[in-house]
Computed example of a mutant assay.
Amino acid sequence: MTDVLILGGTGWLSGRIARRWVDEGAAVTCLGRGSRPAPEGAVLVRGDREDADVYADLSRRDWDHVVDVSSHAVRVERAVDALGDRAGRWTYVSSVSVYSDDETVGADESTPRHPAASPADAYDYGAQKAAAEDAVMRLGERGFIVRPGLIVGDGDPSDRFGYWAAAFARASSEPVLLPPLEGSSAQVIDVDDLAAYIVTATRSGVVNGVGDEHPLADVLGAVRLAAGHTGSVFVADEGWLRAHDVEYWAGPRSLPLWLPTEMSGFMTRSNRAFHASGGRLRPLTDTIERVVADERSRGVDRERHAGLTRAEERALLSDR
């Protein structure tokens, strides 16, 4: 039986990874603070990764596979120092945010990264992920780094992809505000497809764990169809959105999936290595249907971490 240690295992992605490992018949241990349960069939070891002795018991045994998703480089470095010699394989879930080039279309894993963060630096997500990668790379052939882009699916806590399911569903027959579509792409990966890849991949090195590239217009059109929206749409241009203080990508008062022109390559990364190493992607329509159902279940008018409120959207549409 494969002994797997997941540093986390109770969050959205790490929990899906833990569940997939359990389904594959592995003995799964999750290290977490205990604020959320581990998936059924996994063992939860309570511990805070800020504590100096958190790995004391875990480092007394060998692990066939260790998985880490942390976005804090110091935590990853401490884990590698404490457990690296006891791990047969180590997978680190990084991010395409490590890349310093967001303009080149179709860029692969050789694209230059941001400089790795040092302890004295202010927190920067991409730089933290780069420094964490460096720690895992010290393990040589035992280390594997997966760089996802936008991860989507039911239960997504970021609210980015799900925003569009909610926006179309809540509007029903009323208008919906869309970002610029011409020349824009969307590239997402289903959380369960990513979890399956992390569990089954056997290679080392670095792979972009990203989905296939689709025209943004097609993706939003598919979400609109699944949500049953029958109203009109207003496609705004970038200048108009900026003039009306609408943010891109994420956060309050934003239009998720919209990226400015200087980031035209961000959602067009090459996934050739992903496919060549066994990565499989379900039809995007299947993911969309699941996300629409999930948004309806959680409430399309709930408070969100990303997107416009319906009141904000109506105000913007009245000023077009």
Results as ranks from 00 to 15, higher is better:
residue 223 V to D: 01
residue 57 D to C: 02
residue 27 A to Q: 14
residue 273 A to V: 08
residue 84 G to C: 09
residue 173 S to D: 15
residue 48 D to Y: 02
residue 273 A to W: 01
residue 96 V to G: 00
residue 210 V to I: 02
residue 272 R to A: 14
residue 16 R to W: 01
residue 226 A to S: 15
residue 11 G to R: 10
residue 22 V to N: 13
residue 85 D to P: 03
residue 275 H to C: 10
residue 11 G to T: 07
residue 271 N to D: 04
residue 125 Y to E: 08
residue 16 R to Q: 12
residue 83 L to G: 04
residue 290 R to C: 03
residue 240 W to E: 02
residue 316 L to R: 04
residue 136 V to Q: 04
residue 19 R to L: 04
residue 192 D to P: 01
residue 19 R to E: 14
residue 157 P to C: 04
residue 81 D to G: 08
residue 7 L to E: 09
residue 129 K to M: 00
residue 234 F to L: 11
residue 220 L to E: 07
residue 128 Q to I: 02
residue 268 T to W: 05
residue 108 D to Y: 07
residue 33 R to L: 07
residue 312 E to R: 01
residue 109 E to R: 10
residue 173 S to P: 00
residue 25 G to T: 07
residue 318 S to N: 11
residue 178 L to D: 02
residue 251 G to T: 12
residue 264 S to A: 14
residue 12 W to Q: 04
residue 305 H to N: 15
residue 50 E to L: 10
residue 37 P to N: 13
residue 25 G to K: 06
residue 38 A to L: 06
residue 161 F to G: 07
residue 312 E to T: 00
residue 199 V to I: 03
residue 99 Y to I: 02
residue 287 T to K: 08
residue 10 T to E: 08
residue 3 D to M: 12
residue 295 E to K: 00
residue 161 F to K: 04
residue 36 R to S: 14
residue 203 R to A: 14
residue 37 P to H: 12
residue 302 R to K: 08
residue 257 L to R: 10
